[in-house]
């Protein structure tokens, strides 16, 4: 968890995730319960990927995004689901068989009377060191004993 004592510049790493075909099928193949599962598309099927000019099926950008969100949940706890924002650019593809890791660096911290807003640089790094997804995340965490005023 980050808190008001966490030094700016501190980096955080999520676990390495291997983008196996099973994970891609579960994410992009439609619901298991649907007739004809899995749906064939460039995320799940080599032939469809080839039709789109890809050497292999490509992971949906939402998968590395999800790993970054998981890391943010680990860092900011319950607050993320109620006051977490993320802005990402999808820079390079993540293919089936690649491994990626979500990473974050605390870059800013501002406070008002009720809460602290943390800003982090976030990115998803492939096994070859290339950055697949990059951006920033912010989370507003209530100070102990303070109630958020909701409008």
């Amino acid at each position: 968890m980050i808190d008001d004592a966490t030094p700016l510049g501190t980096t955080f790493d999520g676990p390495v995730r291997r983008m196996s075909i099973e994970r891609l099928l579960a994410f992009s193949g439609g619901r298991f319960s649907e007739p004809g599962w899995p749906a064939r598309n460039l995320h799940t099927d080599a032939a469809k990927a080839a039709e789109a000019g890809l050497a292999r099926p490509i992971a949906s950008g939402l998968q590395p995004q999800g790993h970054i969100i998981r890391l943010m949940l680990d860092l900011s706890g319950e607050a993320w689901s109620r006051a977490g924002s993320i802005r990402l650019r999808f820079r390079r593809p993540v293919y089936v068989g690649d491994s990626i890791r979500a990473r974050a660096r605390l870059t800013d911290r501002t406070a008002d009377s009720q809460a602290i807003v943390y800003t982090l640089e976030v990115w998803s790094e492939r096994q070859d060191g290339e950055i697949a997804v990059t951006g920033s995340a912010t989370c507003r965490i209530q100070k102990a004993g303070e109630q958020e005023e909701r409008h």
Binding site: G61, Q65, S81, R82, G84, S85, I86, R87, L88
Partner: peptide, 15 residues
């Protein structure tokens, strides 16, 4: 044709 997502922002407001 296919669609390509270049950038995205999202805010989680409630579970």
């Amino acid at each position: 044709t296919g669609s390509i997502m270049g950038e995205q922002s999202c805010t989680f407001l409630s579970p």
